Simulated assay, not measured.
Amino acid sequence: MKKIYHLSTCNTCQRIIQEINPSSDVQLQDIKTETITKDQLEAMYALTGSYETLFSKRAQLYRQRNLNEQTLSEEDYKNLILEHYTFLKRPVMLVDNQIFVGNSKKVVAQAVEAFN
């Protein structure tokens, strides 16, 4: 399975998707219009072993809610991601049993290679 969880309004996500140049067998899911399900999040967790890895600490809500001043558990990270799409670190790219989370140059380069 090849899938990219992204935000269509995010310029960085758009740039990365263009760089990957996904073929027609790659499923794109805009997380704003098609909410992440618990099963999808748990599948991502199975590959990363951490909800914190999937969590975006750059999200505006992270500071607005003073979450940066709290000690969050894995369950907290999971519930926050399920509660609001902005808490998912983007993009999340899946290729078979590989997962690539975020937009660092290294991660993107690995994802581009895996998709091709």
Rank of each mutant, 00 (worst) to 15 (best):
E34P: 05
P22D: 01
L72T: 01
Q29C: 03
S8R: 15
S50K: 03
L80T: 06
N11M: 13
Q110I: 06
Q70S: 06
Y45T: 11
Y5S: 14
R63C: 09
Q27M: 12
I81C: 08
T71S: 15
L72V: 00
E74A: 09
N68E: 15
Q14R: 15
A109W: 03
Y77T: 07
V95Y: 15
A43R: 09
N66F: 09
S23F: 00
S104M: 05
S24P: 02
K2P: 03
D30C: 03
G49A: 09
Q29P: 02
D39T: 09
I81Y: 04
D76F: 02
Y51V: 12
N79Q: 11
D96T: 08
N103Q: 13
A46H: 09
L82A: 13
H6G: 11
V101C: 07
Y51A: 08
V101Y: 00
Y51P: 02
S50L: 06
L61F: 10
L94D: 08
L80P: 08
Q14M: 13
L47E: 12
M93N: 05
I81N: 07
Q98W: 02
E42W: 06
K105N: 14
I16H: 00
L7C: 15
S104E: 10
Q70E: 10
E75G: 03
R63S: 14
M44G: 12
Q14G: 06
Q40H: 06
R90M: 05
E75D: 13
